[in-house]
Design a binder for these strands. Structure first.
Length: 287
DNA sequence: CTATGAACCTGACAGC
DNA sequence: TGCTGTCAGGTTCATA
């Protein structure tokens, strides 16, 4: 589900709803959500109870909340995870996976996850450091320290398609299927353009558009197709109305009028304008 | 090291 | 009504 704009919206919600609060009790429902926890649910709970959340941070689509020791609660929303502030019994009991109660009492913080691709675990982290389990995730394009030159160099060193590279979280993080397609449309690039054959100007334009679409979407609170993505307060994002190609198969391109196409890609779909984003010649394509 | 595909889940929807 | 197949915002792991 969520890409950078959605996860960042959630991070801001956690910053407001959880940071500074002392954890009084933690309940875990089932084992799957904490499957990455060393020591299982028991250790998960014991490392959290009595601690205080001191910050809410994000790396790509990962979230982590440092505690007042050398641990942090690490969270990934997967396709359907959501944190919700809850003053009463949650209405979505079927998918409630964890519940955090605080010393200052309500509201609780709940973690819901329909498809259970999301996860929670406590990991060691030194002060200000990134948890070791997410150290392989690259910086995101909105991070001031993101090194565009190094990213361009890594594109040149690979034989892959540009969209595959955009989705590779070890090269650049935070971009998923929606915003990859939107940025490629804005930059007028086909998803199978070879990463090693792009001109530097193409890469610059593409990354400018990546930054633009992520920024626009963040301002809108993200993209909500359904109830699977909402903020910690249950609000939907309204960027869907701004999408130009994603989910718009058959509709006219707003630039040229050609019908948007949906094509199979990496066991999912890619959307593009056939006229603005023409297929590269065979030798330059990397599917 | 790089590239690819399968696996992990639940639910909504279309078509028969 | 109910079955089957398809599809969905993601990451990890095993295999070439």
């Amino acid at each position: 589900m969520p890409e950078l704009p959605e996860v960042e919206t959630v991070r801001r919600g956690l910053d407001a709803a959880a940071v500074g609060r002392i954890i009084r009790a933690v309940e875990v429902f089932g084992t799957r959500t904490v499957r990455r926890q060393h020591g299982g649910a028991a250790e998960f709970v014991s490392r959290l109870v009595g601690r205080t959340f001191t910050a809410a941070r994000r790396r790509g689509k990962y979230l982590w909340l440092p505690l007042d020791d050398d641990d942090a609660l690490v969270a990934h929303l997967g396709m359907s995870g959501q944190f919700r502030v809850s003053t009463v019994d949650t209405p979505d009991v079927a998918h409630l996976r964890a519940r955090f109660a605080f010393a200052d009492s309500p509201p609780d913080l709940c973690f819901h996850d329909q498809r259970t691709f999301g996860g929670l675990y406590v990991d060691d982290t030194g002060p200000g450091a990134v948890p070791a389990t997410i150290a392989h995730i690259a910086l995101d394009p909105l991070d001031p320290a993101f090194d565009r030159g190094a990213f361009a160099a890594s594109l040149r060193g690979r034989r892959t398609g540009i969209k595959r590279a955009l989705l590779d979280q070890s090269l650049v993080s935070g971009i998923g299927n929606i915003y990859a397609d939107e940025a490629l449309w804005r930059a007028r690039l086909h998803y199978a353009r070879g990463s090693d054959a792009l001109r530097r100007a193409d890469v610059e334009r593409l990354m400018d558009e990546v930054v633009a679409v992520l920024t626009d979407a963040l301002r809108a609170g993200g993209t909500s197709f359904d109830a699977l993505y909402v903020s910690v307060n249950g609000e939907s994002g309204w960027f869907e109305r701004s999408l130009e190609v994603y989910g718009r198969e058959g509709e006219p391109c707003s630039r040229c009028g050609a019908a948007i196409r949906r094509e199979p890609f990496m066991n999912r779909s890619s959307y593009r304008c056939p006229r603005c984003q023409p297929q590269p010649r065979a030798g330059a394509a990397r599917w």
